[in-house]
Write a protein that binds this DNA or RNA. Structure first.
Lengths: 362, 362
DNA sequence: TCAAATCGTGTAATCGGTTACATGACACAC
DNA sequence: GTGTGTCATGTAACCGATTACACGATTTGA
C-alpha cells in the first residue's frame, strides 16, 4: 500500500493537482470552500508531501551538508549541536557525511551531496582549495571550517590557534614559569601545527628555549607525553598542551607521579571542553565557544544561500574569513601566585577558593 | 551557469541519456568504446549526478533520519557518532532533525522526513506509539530508541534502566552502605523515571527506606541536590545519581563541603560518559556502550530496509525490542572491597547473578 | 450589450534522473 | 534469402511535486 500522492488527493477532492498544491502550500488564490475540501481529502488519505519530489521542482532542499573528517570527537559533536540548534530556527535540516581520510574520499563525499543540499560546511582538512573547486562542479555555497581555511578565498571561519597559543605561553610566563614545555598535537593536523607555531614564536619572543613532545590529541597521549617529560633530564615548570584532552591526561600523570599542580608545574589546555571545568585542579585553558561558533557558521551559510537565490553574488563581508579568538579561562591548574596567597589567608586550604571559581563557570 | 545534467552529457557524447545512465551506474551492456566516450564527456562537463532526482525515480535515498529530542547533550552526540560510523560502512547518510518539545512538533518533524529518508530513528520521547503511527502515514522502517519504547510493537532498542538502577543500589549495599539516597532525573523523563523506579524497588527489596531529591540531569542540579541532601537532617552514606553529570556535580559539592568520597559517602552515576573516568575520585557508574548501541541501531534499521525492499515483512527478530544492559564499572567513588562483594555472593538474592549478567551482555 | 478585467481552476511542461520496451544492426543457420 | 536471436542503443514513460499559462465564468465599465 503506497502512500498517497498529490494526485490521489486531487482525485479524492475532485480537483486538479494544481489546486491541491496551492491549497497546501502558500495560500494562493483558492476558494475557501475548495481549500476545505482539499484539506479534508488530504487528511482522509493521510497525505504527506514528498520532500524529495518537491525539492526537485523547486530546486530547494532546505538541507545543509556537513563534511566531517574521518574521526571526530567531542569538539565536532558540540559544533554540530550548535549548528543544529540554529538550523532549526532557520528551517533547515542537517545532513552529515563522514568523509574518508583521503582527499579523494572527501571529494566523493562532497559530490554525493549534489541535489541533496543547498549548502555545505567543510570541516574536513583533507580538502584543500583546489580539490574543493573541482569537487563541487555546481558551486554550492560553502563555509570552510578547518584550520588553514583562512588562506582560501572562500568564506570561512577559523580559530586563531596561533594567537591562542601565544596567550597560553604569556599567561604561563606571567604566573612565573620560566621553563615551558609543549605537548603538541599530531603532525599534519593544521590546528595542531598552528598551535605549535604560536608556542614557538612566543617562546622565541620571550628568549626561552622551546621544548616539544608530540601527542595525538587524545587523553592517553597526554598522559604518555607527560611521563616522557618527567623522565627527560630537562626540568620544566609549565606545560602548554595542544588541547584539553591531552592536558587532562597530563594532569593525571602528574598526579600519579606525585608532582603537584600548579605548585610544581602549571598546565594550560586548549578548547575548554566541558570536562576542563570539572577535573581537579580545574584546567586553565583557551575557550572556544564551540556551539556558538557552529551557530555563526550556520548563519553565514544561510545568508549566502539566500543571497545567491535572491540577488547576485553574496555580500562582500560574507566572502571574508572570520576569525574566532579563543579566550583565556584561568582555573586552578595555573593559579597565579597572588590567588594562592589569598587562599592561604586563614582558610585551611585553597580548595574552597578554587571550587567557588568553578561553580561560577559551570 | 547551471551544473551539467545527464542530458548535457548525452548530447556532448552523442548518445542517449539511457546510455549515459547505464555507463555511469552499474555496468549494464555498454560498449567499452561508448562508455569511454561518455566518461570523458562527463569529465569534461564536470558532471555530478543529482541525488535528489535519482532518489525520486529509484525511491531510494540512502539516507536515514534521526528524530532528536529538543535538547540533547553528550549522550546523543555520542550515539549519533556511533550511528554515523556504521552508516558510512553501509553507504548511508544521516540527517538529523531536532523536533520541538511537544508531540505535534515531533510529528511534524517525522512527516517532513517523507521523501527524504529510507528509514527513521526516533529518539524523541514525546512520540508515543499512537502519534507515531499517524505521523508516518507512509510507514517507514523505524527503530525506536527512547525509554519506554519497549512497550511498543515497533522495533526498538532500549536501555535497561531499571536493572541498572538495581545494580547500582546492590553495589552500594555490597560496599556496606545502609542509607542510600537518590538524585533523580527530571520528572517526565522516561529514562529518569525508570531509574527512579529501579532504585525504589531495590531499596524496598533491601528493606530500606528510600530518600529521593529531584535534579534535572545537569551537573549544576547534581551539585545543588547534594547540598540539599547535606542540609537535610537525614543522614546518608551512599548516593545513586540518575546520570553521571549529576554525580559529578555531587562529587564537587561533597569535596567543597569537606565530605570525603568514598570514605564518608559513596557515589554511583549512570551512563559512563568519558568524564566519569577522568574525575577524581573516578566515578563508579553503569556503563552504556553508547557508540556501539548506535551502531547496533543502525544495523537493525538497515536490515529492516533491505528486508522491506527485497522480501516481504522483516524477520521476526527485527520487530523485537532489544535491551541494552548497562554494565557496572567500579571506580574509586565507591570503595570496592572485593571481599565485601564476595560476601554478597553467598546471599540468596538474585543480586550477584544479575550483576554477572550485566557483565556478560556488555 | 459587448469588451476587458478579474478570478478560480485545470492542463501540461518541468525538475533530473532510471528503466521497460522498442528499434535497428548484425550474425548465424536453414 | 528469409527467419531468428543477440546485443547495443534510443525513445519515452515515470517518480511526485511545482507552476506558467490557458481557459471559462463572472464581474466591471463604457
Amino acid at each position: 500500500m503506497k502512500p498517497a500522492t498529490i494526485r490521489d488527493v486531487a482525485r479524492h477532492a475532485q480537483v486538479s493537482v494544481a489546486s491541491v498544491s496551492r491549497a497546501l502550500n502558500g495560500s494562493d488564490t483558492v476558494t475557501e470552500e475548495t481549500r476545505k475540501r482539499i484539506l479534508e481529502s488530504a487528511e482522509a488519505l493521510q497525505y504527506v508531501p514528498h520532500s524529495g519530489a518537491r525539492s526537485l521542482s523547486t530546486s530547494k532542499t532546505n538541507t545543509l551538508g556537513i563534511i566531517l573528517p574521518d574521526l571526530y570527537g567531542e569538539f565536532f559533536s558540540e559544533l554540530i549541536r550548535g549548528m543544529d540548534l540554529a538550523a532549526r530556527e532557520h528551517g533547515y535540516h542537517l545532513i552529515v557525511s563522514s568523509s574518508h581520510d583521503d582527499a579523494d574520499g572527501a571529494a566523493a563525499a562532497i559530490r554525493s551531496m549534489r541535489g541533496r543540499v543547498d549548502g555545505l560546511f567543510v570541516l574536513s582538512p583533507q580538502i584543500d582549495s583546489a580539490n574543493l573547486a573541482t569537487a563541487m562542479a555546481g558551486r554550492l555555497p560553502v563555509v570552510l571550517m578547518h584550520g588553514g581555511a583562512g588562506e582560501s578565498t572562500l568564506p570561512s571561519i577559523v580559530v586563531d590557534n596561533n594567537g591562542g597559543a601565544h596567550a597560553a605561553v604569556d599567561h604561563l610566563l606571567a604566573t612565573g614559569c620560566r621553563s615551558i614545555a609543549h605537548i603538541a598535537g599530531p603532525a599534519g593536523n593544521l590546528e595542531a601545527e598552528a598551535r605549535l607555531a604560536g608556542y614557538l614564536e612566543a617562546m622565541a619572543e620571550a628568549g626561552l628555549e622551546p621544548h616539544v613532545v608530540e601527542g595525538d590529541f587524545n587523553q592517553g597521549s597526554g598522559h604518555a607525553s607527560a611521563q616522557a617529560l618527567m623522565a627527560a633530564p630537562r626540568r620544566f615548570d609549565g606545560v602548554f598542551c595542544g588541547n584539553d584532552m591531552m592536558a587532562i591526561g597530563a594532569l593525571l600523570a602528574f598526579q600519579e607521579a606525585g608532582v603537584r599542580c600548579p605548585e610544581d608545574v602549571a598546565v594550560v589546555g586548549f578548547d575548554d571542553v566541558p570536562i576542563a571545568a570539572l577535573v581537579r585542579p580545574g584546567l586553565t585553558t583557551l575557550r572556544i565557544r564551540i556551539a556558538e561558533t557552529g551557530r555563526r557558521a550556520l548563519q553565514r551559510l544561510v545568508g549566502q544561500i539566500e543571497a545567491a537565490q535572491a540577488g547576485r553574488e553574496a555580500t562582500q563581508s560574507s566572502s571574508a574569513c572570520e576569525v574566532v579568538r579563543p579566550e583565556l579561562v584561568i582555573r586552578t591548574s595555573t593559579r597565579a601566585s597572588v590567588s594562592t596567597t589569598r587562599a592561604a589567608d586563614g582558610r585551611p586550604s585553597g580548595v574552597t577558593a578554587s571550587a567557588q571559581g568553578e561553580n561560577q563557570d559551570g
